[in-house]
Amino acid sequence: MDISAINEDLANIDAQINDLLRALSNGFQKLDKVKDPNRQSRQLEELTEKMRECKRLIKEFDRELKVEESQNTTSVIKMLNDRKQAMIKELNSFVALKKQYGGNLGNKRNELFDAHEAGPGPGEEGVFLASSMTNQQLMDAGDRMMNETDQAIERSKKVVHDTVNVGGETAAALKAQTEQMSRIVNELDSIHFSMKKATQLVKEIGRQVATDRCIMALLFLIVVGVIAIIIVKIVNPKNKDIRDIPGLAPPVNRKLLWDHHYYR
């Protein structure tokens, strides 16, 4: 087909369809060499998905072809229609192959299933139809079934007993954990109360320390003032202001004796 005679969209769709048809052809050729039914089934599903995609692209090709009918010549339209029919024919051949492989795969699975059903399973050796068994065989078979039933019951009892023990141990562990959690909560409450009391005590100590500091500061000021007055008195004993301070002025008798001695 002359690709230059069609537009770019149709050419892209045609190329995608060609790739899918080529992949389908190669896939069915490889499918003949696969012997494993499961693997063959998976590959057949992959090929089926590619056939669905190819069918979708052919429909899209047909829609684009109808849009281009008014813009192309009759010969181009005929060529595109022939191309579409050839793609549909090739796709239908792959659909027929898919049905054929699907039928063969189903027959293989049925044969495997029938063989499995016909053959004796594990533990079924020596099992006969009841109609062909003698009374002794029936009794033996009944005894075996009863023994197997008793063993199954004993196993079930053991499982139930183990389950009850596990449940009891779990309940005891949960109870111990619950009590431990309760103790932890009580300890946390005690710690919280202790921290609250400690905070109050620290606040009271802080207030007391502040009061003591104020008193010490006041006493320090008084001592400094007294020391300062004493120093000034020593340096300048004639200072009348200091002399008038109670306790610092010299006694009256001592002053008179001093004046008398001076005038003599």
Rank of each mutant, 00 (worst) to 15 (best):
M1F: 00
D2V: 06
N7P: 03
L10N: 04
A11R: 03
D14H: 04
A15T: 06
Q16L: 07
I17P: 01
N18T: 08
L24V: 00
S25W: 04
N26W: 04
L31F: 07
L31A: 05
D32N: 09
K35V: 05
D36S: 05
P37K: 04
N38Y: 04
R42H: 02
L44N: 00
L44A: 02
M51A: 00
R56W: 05
R56Q: 06
L57S: 00
I58Q: 00
E60D: 00
D62G: 01
V67F: 04
V67E: 10
V67Q: 03
E68D: 01
E69F: 04
S70I: 08
T73K: 02
S75P: 01
V76Y: 00
I77L: 04
K78C: 04
N81E: 05
N81G: 09
Q85W: 07
A86I: 01
A86W: 03
F94G: 06
F94L: 07
K99T: 02
K99V: 04
Q100M: 04
Q100K: 06
G102A: 06
N104M: 09
L105H: 01
L105T: 05
K108Q: 13
E111A: 13
A115R: 14
E117V: 15
G119E: 15
G119L: 14
P122R: 05
P122W: 08
E124I: 03
F128S: 11
L129T: 08
L129P: 08
A130E: 14
S131G: 08
S132D: 13
S132P: 08
N135Q: 10
Q137S: 09
L138H: 10
D140T: 14
A141T: 13
G142L: 13
M145R: 14
N147Y: 10
E148M: 11
S156L: 09
K157I: 12
V159S: 08
D162V: 02
D162N: 06
T163L: 08
T163H: 11
T163Q: 08
T163I: 02
G167N: 03
G168V: 02
T170R: 00
T170S: 04
K175V: 01
A176I: 03
M181R: 03
M181G: 02
S182N: 02
I184N: 01
V185N: 00
N186G: 03
L188I: 04
D189W: 07
I191M: 06
H192Q: 11
F193W: 10
F193Y: 07
S194F: 10
T199M: 13
Q200R: 14
Q200F: 11
K203E: 15
G206S: 13
G206V: 11
C214M: 13
A217E: 13
L218N: 11
L218D: 14
L221R: 09
V223H: 11
V223L: 10
V223E: 09
V224D: 11
G225P: 06
A228G: 10
A228W: 15
I229N: 07
N236H: 09
P237G: 03
N239M: 07
K240T: 14
R243N: 15
G247E: 04
L248D: 11
R254M: 13
R254K: 12
R254L: 14
L256Q: 11
L256N: 09
L257N: 08
W258K: 11
D259H: 13
R264A: 14
